[in-house]
């Protein structure tokens, strides 16, 4: 099937589309891709189901035996494709699930990433949110299960949290459909209206910061900035095992290559 691209057809658009196809994501026409991340047991699939209803499609991540669920929803005449990432506690370990979530947020170039947090255990859940914010600035934090938090008599200062983290915070109780409209609105402002964010960067201890700054010039020489955040990359060079670095290499090698290839095709590409 040949698709003629609309006014969005510039190299970058292609490039993200080609990248997404690596992850088995196929968008139709002008559709925004939204990734959904979160710890296990935070009601992430409830959020997913509540937003997409019956417009779902389930399968596997390409080449992996891990479930991949995608679903559509429309908001103000725009279409959004929600990609449910595997539930993970972090993006740093090496289980297949975390690899998929990390690689998609890093290299799948979603238009936005929603991180679902459990309102009753923010302390642990914020770990993942901060890690995602290190990779991408297009992050929306959905603090789910606020009904449970209310029952536990926890009151959360969402304004303060938003001011501190610099990204939109949306409280929800997805089981009762509470806050879902706000979530859709936040996604819309981010991807359609291009509302800016100032994601908080994790304040590392001096020792870590020093190690990063020592390495940063070398990383910046590689000019991978468009693909990954150099500071994040420097840190991963310092704390990860070699297979992770190989993945990054592989994807950063694919990216420019594909961009060049799609430019040659001149406005059309084959699905």
């Amino acid at each position: 099937m040949k698709l003629k691209l609309g006014d969005h057809s510039n190299a970058l658009q292609y490039h993200s589309r080609v990248m997404r196809e690596q992850f088995g994501i196929r968008t139709t026409g002008e559709q925004y891709v939204i990734a959904l991340a979160g710890n296990p047991n935070v009601g992430k699939s409830t959020v997913f189901n509540a937003l997409t209803g019956l417009h779902q499609h389930t399968g596997n991540w390409p080449g992996k035996t891990v479930d991949n669920a995608q679903g559509n929803y429309s908001y103000r005449n725009k279409s959004f494709l929600l990609v449910d990432l595997p539930g993970t506690y972090s993006l740093l370990a090496h289980s297949v699930e975390e690899e998929i979530a990390r690689d998609f947020i890093c290299f799948g170039q979603p238009d936005a990433t929603i991180v679902v947090l459990d309102a009753t255990s923010l302390e642990r859940n914020l770990n993942l949110a901060l890690q995602v914010m290190e990779i991408s600035s297009k992050v929306i934090i959905c603090v789910n299960l606020i009904d449970e938090a209310r029952k536990k008599k926890l009151s959360i200062n969402f304004d303060e949290l938003e001011k501190e983290l610099g990204v939109p915070i949306v409280p929800t109780a997805a089981r009762n459909r509470e806050g879902l409209a706000d979530l859709q609105k936040a996604v819309y402002s981010m991807v359609v209206e291009k509302k800016k964010t100032w994601p908080k960067q994790i304040p590392y201890s001096e020792e870590v910061e020093q190690a990063i700054s020592a390495l940063l010039p070398k990383v910046e020489e590689l000019s991978l900035a468009r693909v990954v955040n150099p500071k994040w990359l420097a840190l991963r060079l310092l704390d990860s095992d070699v297979s992770f670095i190989e993945t990054i290499s592989r994807y950063s090698a694919i990216q420019p290559l594909r961009t060049v290839a799609s430019q040659r095709q001149g406005g059309e590409f084959t699905l």
Binding site: Y89, S90, L92, A93, H94, S95, E123, R124, N127
Partner: peptide, 11 residues
């Protein structure tokens, strides 16, 4: 190994 990472990530 992997368990160390897991345990760290749980806080």
């Amino acid at each position: 190994g992997l368990l160390r990472r897991r345990i760290l990530d749980l806080g």
